[in-house]
Design a protein around this nucleic acid. Sequence first.
DNA 1: ATGCACGTTGCATATGTTGCAACGCGAAGG
DNA 2: CCTTCGCGTTGCAACATATGCAACGTGCAT
Lengths: 253, 253
Amino acid sequence: MSQTVDRALRILPLLAEGPANLEQVATRLDVHKSTALRLLRTLHEHGMVYRQEDQRYRLGARLFALAQQAMETLDVREIAHPHLLTLNEKIGHTIHLAVYEEGEVVYIDKVESRYPVRMYSRIGKPVAITVAAVAKLLLADLPEAERRSIAERLEYPKYTARSTPDAAAFLTELLRVRDQGWATDLGGHEESINCVGAPIRGADGRIAAAMSVSAPNVVVTADELLKLRPLILRTAEAISREYSGNTVSKDTP
Amino acid sequence: MSQTVDRALRILPLLAEGPANLEQVATRLDVHKSTALRLLRTLHEHGMVYRQEDQRYRLGARLFALAQQAMETLDVREIAHPHLLTLNEKIGHTIHLAVYEEGEVVYIDKVESRYPVRMYSRIGKPVAITVAAVAKLLLADLPEAERRSIAERLEYPKYTARSTPDAAAFLTELLRVRDQGWATDLGGHEESINCVGAPIRGADGRIAAAMSVSAPNVVVTADELLKLRPLILRTAEAISREYSGNTVSKDTP
DNA sequence: ATGCACGTTGCATATGTTGCAACGCGAAGG
DNA sequence: CCTTCGCGTTGCAACATATGCAACGTGCAT
């Protein structure tokens, strides 16, 4: 809608790939150098981009701070967090909380496993959308048309032999997940890691977020992990209940 | 420099405080509603803002993804990470990595403690700049004028009785840190938590990042933690050596 | 010294942005 | 049921502003 802002914003993902100099930015934006310079300067003033010693630009620290602050004001996250901690104290494994937003699924909270095993995931990181248990839950709840259109424009990377292979398989899986009310990822993202996920619903019954428990084979087998399902579902329901109370606004008593 | 982009960017911190509707945004920007609408639409198209069901706007998921991606391409972080993991395997405590950037200090990496104690900090979160060991190290290396000007415009919240009280005390502390080449935070941020930090230097000898080890009193006393200083300094030096090799560009062999 | 590669600046042009006023729409209230 | 209010949305004309150009700096290499 606004050409100038549009151009400025197109710079950000471009710099996210790695530092770039003025000319590279201008070329990729398809504008004159002087135009790119002025846009970068404005972004710089707001701390969105940073100019390193070699004069190249990269994304700035303000961006991190913004993302951080935004995450902390999310209602679901605040409500869910204590529940996730309690669950983690009981079972010890890694717990994730994720939301869906216009084509993307991102982790908004994570409680680390008490076992000395590291799992690569990070708050703010886009989820492996075709395989993650939380992603299946969140997408399964969308209207049919949207589900289909998303499924079709996704890519289906073969992380492992058990990754979702294509759109058809994905849509079938989503229907199954929708019916059973919970989801799994059994080695679909990383060979040795299994997850069990459960939905968190808002006052309108729609899925507002999803949580999952992940553990590597070396700690528990998939079967053992699945035994925790009732506990996980109960936690998700507890969060749903609390969240349904005050969905719309924080300050309604 | 560019009015339109400037206005659009001013919307972001405004929304970071919490959701707002069109009129509120327009008022706070001091522009006409229609102008605010067009800016918000453009931000929306880029996923920077999200419109929730009640029509109010809040920050969007793309912001998280961007911040995340940017962080992962930081050279220091990539180089330091394995060293931090090794150190963590030896001593078990929480380890942070932080950088300074135009007035802000942010954590760019964190390795969780192996002890079952949670510490509130998060990657991307702005550091408690007046007390944190990493912040002292990073600021201590700035030219005198800049150090002074920053110190003077900072606020000095009294997190605890041992927090840095004012600009004068802070500047003195910075000089001390600069001389000794390492820093501590002994209960200055949270009563029961102590930290020891060490600088990571680039090829030019300037401090490019800082790392710290944090542990609560219940796990180790401050004295015991300080005994780890040589080990921490050695780790920081190892990272510095490796980082000095390829500061400027990733692809110089 | 000379050339090259890039960043930077001033300026005239026209393009894109702005504020206005009017419209739409749902909620609240008589 | 109609009116009023609050808020988001749209089309348009006026003008501010972003744009590309060409020329100028500056550092680096030859």
